[in-house]
Simulated scan of single mutants.
Amino acid sequence: MFEEHVTGLAFPEAARWHDGHLWFSDMHDERVFRVDGPGRVTEVVRVPGDPAGLGWLPDGRLLVVSMHDRRLLRLDPDGLTGHADLGHIATWHCNDMVVDAQGRAYVGNFGDGTPPGTPITPADLALVHPDGTVVVAATGLEFPNGAAIGDGTLVIAETRADPPRLTRFDIEPDGTLTSRRLFASLGPESPDGICLDAEGAVWFASWSTNEVIRVREGGEILDRRSTGDAGAYSCVLGGDDGRTLFVCVAATWMPEESRRTRTGRILATRVDVPATHLR
Rank of each mutant, 00 (worst) to 15 (best):
P51N: 00
G152D: 07
V99T: 12
D50K: 14
L63H: 02
R74P: 04
L80T: 03
L62Q: 04
L125W: 11
I171Y: 03
G117Q: 12
L141P: 13
D112T: 05
A52L: 07
V107P: 07
N109Q: 08
T118M: 12
A126V: 05
G79T: 11
V98C: 04
A126Y: 01
F110I: 02
A84C: 08
H93P: 00
V64T: 09
I156F: 02
L62E: 00
L127R: 12
V155L: 12
G55K: 05
R180D: 07
E172I: 01
T42H: 15
T167S: 11
R71K: 15
T176E: 15
R74G: 03
D112C: 04
T176L: 09
D162C: 09
T121H: 12
V128R: 00
R40N: 13
G113A: 14
G60D: 10
P130R: 07
T118V: 08
P163W: 12
H68C: 12
T42G: 11
G53N: 04
A137Q: 05
A52W: 00
N109H: 13
P122E: 03
P144L: 04
H88C: 11
D162V: 14
T42F: 12
T167I: 11
L127I: 08
E43H: 14
P58A: 10
L63Q: 01
S66Y: 01
L62Y: 02
R46V: 14
T118K: 13
L62K: 00
Y106V: 04
D96S: 07
V47T: 03
V98T: 10
L73S: 03
G53M: 03
P144H: 03
I120L: 15
A138Y: 05
D96L: 06
T114K: 13
G175I: 07
D85Q: 04
D59A: 10
P77D: 06
V41S: 11
R165D: 10
A147V: 05
T118E: 14
Q102W: 13
R165F: 09
H129F: 09
Q102A: 15
G103W: 05
F169D: 04
G108W: 04
N145F: 06
W56V: 01
E158R: 03
R180I: 02
R61E: 13
T81E: 05
L80R: 00
D85C: 07
R180W: 09
P58N: 10
E142V: 15
H83T: 00
P164H: 09
P173A: 12
T114N: 14
A105V: 06
I89Q: 03
P119M: 00
P58T: 11
D76H: 01
D162G: 06
D100S: 07
P163H: 13
H83E: 11
R46L: 10
M67V: 05
L73N: 00
A105W: 08
I120N: 14
W56A: 04
A123S: 10
P77F: 01
D76A: 15
A148I: 09
A126I: 06
R46N: 03
D50A: 15
P130E: 07
H83N: 02
L57R: 09
R168N: 04
T159P: 07
R160S: 06
V128F: 03
T176F: 08
L125Y: 11
R180L: 06
A90W: 06
D96C: 07
T81G: 14
V44S: 05
A161Y: 02
G150E: 15
R160F: 15
W92A: 14
R71G: 06
A126N: 01
G117C: 12
L86G: 07
